[in-house]
Structures are given as structure tokens and as C-alpha cells.
Design a binder for these strands. Structure first.
Lengths: 212, 212
DNA sequence: GTCTATATATCGATAGAC
DNA sequence: GTCTATCGATATATAGAC
């Protein structure tokens, strides 16, 4: 996708473009973001060159600079796009049902993200660049961690039979233990050193919370 | 704190940890490693230049290249040194005592690492470079996560009154929820967005595990 | 061993043709 | 808007004096 055949000039696009111009411009932006997402999430911020992004996205470097101010602007736009998309996926289901069944379903749904390479890479890169881009770390906390934690603690509060004294702290523990399981198994490669079946984590966690 | 037990349960993994690099440390080499640790853990791998390391360590660049093969070799040696030092700190105390008191003490001791900038930065950098340096992620898992997990699960097994069906999974949950608390609060900046008193986490966690 | 000076490559960002 | 070509800065790593 990187090169056009040199024998065929692009004159065919020359004049009949009004709205198409806008549409093709925004699709170019999308094209850049998709390529940039692949390479930035795979290799991190600093090791990724704008030349590499241009190649990966199939556009020239100047085209990137006509859509984004600089490397930081492109990276921020990309993280924001991926993060918000994950937020939308996160809360498609409502929190209703019996505690054991519901919490088991939530936990397994959360751990399914282990298999999503883009999710794991996003987690890695957000942590990696949290010092250089603190506003992106805050974005991730506000759009992913905080909403999830608030939903679960509200559910705990509405089920007093669970006898949870501190719903917020318990929600923190619930999602935290699952998140660190993903982090250690997939990112810190514990799955090769001390593999752990995800069903055992879920079962023990539910047992703790629900006094099973 | 007690000595690091060199011939204890970790013996079977010690072959993957090259202690020779530490024993044969000359003072110049140690000087380089100290300066390199500061700058690498603060800024990450790629953004750190060898010029900056030379300045920070107070030596010339060529002196670095006479002690280490290249940038990767220096970085690997540094992570290995810091990781092993943390391993020694981690298991200075023995796991004995009543569950509630002991687990509370362990949890608070673990969360004290939140205040150690070098520990937090190491966690960030190991995660950040886990794709480029998978052997360092494995080193961290083998020397920090695995021993801690094994010790705690052994303690759980020796206290059947806790009625823990899956000691390994529960140990995973115990340390995982604490680690993710540090990660979210300090690295993902949740302490500014959704602050949480560490005592609440510890209390809720002990309550869950000990059926308080 | 340790320093200064430098070779060589690659980076982010821009200029100018079309 | 999109391309090719290039600038100035900075990177890793090395050569040679002492």
C-alpha cells in the first residue's frame, strides 16, 4: 500500500471534488490513526519514528503533519481514540442479577481482554509513558478505571447481604486483582514462568467477596 | 532485616540470575551503574542518551563502553542489580504469626513501596520495556513476583483455619490487588482523581481473606 | 583506563513542486 | 492536500591522544 504505480498519474481526481475532498481528508486522518495505533502501541512512543508511522499508514510524512501538529499531538489523539473506544465496550452490559453469577460474568468478561493484543499494548504504553504524558494516564484513569470502580461499588452498596463494609475499597480490590493478573501473566510474562488458570483466579475472588 | 537465604527455595532458579556481575563490581562500574539507574529509571530506555548517562555518572562516555558492551548491556545490568536488591529487601522478614496481624503487616510493608520513587520507577520501566527486553520482565517475575507468591501461598496452606481452597490463586489476588493499587494510584495518577486511603485497602483485603 | 573529538546514522519537522 | 527532498539536531558507537 506504500507506493503508487508510477506509470499512472493521479490526474483523475483533479476537479470533480467538493464534498469528496472533505470526506477523503477525514478518511486520511482515520487512515493515519489506524497505522499510528499499530506502531505506537507495539513499540512505544520514543522508539516510533514519524517515518515509520508514514510507511505503516501508507501516506507521506507531510500528510501526517497536515493533520496533526506534531508527534505528541498524534500520539495523544491516538490514545484518546483507543481509550474512549474501550470505554464504550466496557459498559455495554448493565449490573443486574444475583451476586455470584453477575460477578463471575464480570470477572470473566474483564479477563477476556487478556486475549486482546491492542488492550494489552495500550495498558503497557499508558504505563510506559505515564511520566512523559501524565494527561494520558489521567485520561485512562478517568475513562476506564474510575467508571468501572464506581459501578461496581454502587452494586456492592445495593446488595447489603454481601456484608461489604467498604464498597469502594472492595471494588478496587476486585478489579485490581484482575488487572494485575493480566499485567503479570501477559506483560511480565508470568504465564511462561508461573502459569495460572484464569478460572482459578475468578473462582477464588468470587469466593472471597461472596463468602462462598 | 535478615540475610538473603542464598541456598533456600530459590536455588533452582538462581542459574538465571547472574550474580557474577555484582560480585566483580569495580568502583567505576558501580559509579556508572548508580548514575545510569537514576536516569534510566526516571526517563525510560529510549529517551535516555549515553551522553546523559556519562554526565550523570560523572565519567566519560568511552569509560562506559569499556565496562559495558553497549546501551542494552548497561540497561540489563542495571535492572538486574536493582531487581536483585529488591528481592533481598523483600524477604528479610519471616512469615510467622497470627493471620490477621501477619497479613496486615505484610500488606502495609508492601504498600510502603509506594513511597519509594525508585521502586515505582522500576515497575514503570520494566512494564514499559517488557516488549523490547522480555528477559528483564522474566527476571522481575522470577525474582520478585514468584518468590513472594510462593511464600504467601505456603503460609495459607499451613493455616487451614483460613479455609482457603486455592492458596496459590488467593496469594495471587492478595499481592495483585496491592500491586495494582500502587500502579493505579502512583503511576496512573489515580491518587489525584480517585484518591483512596491505603489503610482502607488493607483492612478490606484482610477482612476478605480472614473472614473478619 | 580515561579522556576529547569525531564518524555515521537517524530523528522530528519543514520547504517547495504540483 | 499530498508528495519528494532536505535541514538542523541529536543519537550510538568508535578512534586516537595521554
Amino acid at each position: 500500500m506504500a507506493q503508487f504505480p508510477t506509470g499512472e498519474p493521479l490526474a483523475e481526481q483533479s476537479e470533480s471534488i467538493n464534498l469528496d475532498n472533505i470526506r477523503s481528508a477525514s478518511s486520511k486522518r482515520e487512515q493515519i490513526l489506524q497505522g499510528a495505533t499499530r506502531v505506537f502501541l507495539s513499540h512505544g512512543y520514543a522508539p516510533t519514528s514519524m517515518d515509520r508511522v508514514a510507511t505503516e499508514a501508507g501516506v507521506s510524512k507531510q500528510t501526517i503533519y497536515s493533520h496533526f501538529q506534531d508527534k505528541e499531538g498524534l500520539f495523544s489523539a491516538l490514545i484518546e481514540r483507543v481509550t474512549i473506544r474501550q470505554l464504550q465496550e466496557e459498559f455495554g452490559t448493565e449490573l443486574q442479577g444475583e451476586p455470584v453469577q453477575l460477578l463471575t460474568r464480570i470477572a470473566h468478561s474483564f479477563l477476556k481482554k487478556m486475549d486482546d493484543i491492542e488492550y494489552v499494548n495500550l495498558l503497557r504504553v499508558v504505563v510506559a509513558e505515564s511520566a512523559r504524558f501524565p494527561e494520558l494516564a489521567e485520561l485512562y484513569t478517568k475513562t476506564v478505571i474510575q467508571p468501572g470502580s464506581q459501578c461496581l461499588s454502587a452494586y456492592f452498596r445495593s446488595h447489603p447481604e454481601l456484608e461489604i463494609k467498604d464498597p469502594e475499597a472492595t471494588a478496587y480490590i476486585f478489579f485490581g486483582s484482575l488487572a494485575s493478573f493480566i499485567l503479570s501473566q501477559q506483560i511480565l510474562l508470568a504465564k511462561q514462568i508461573m502459569p495460572m488458570e484464569r478460572g482459578r483466579i475468578v473462582e477464588s475472588l468470587i469466593k472471597l467477596v461472596c463468602h462462598g
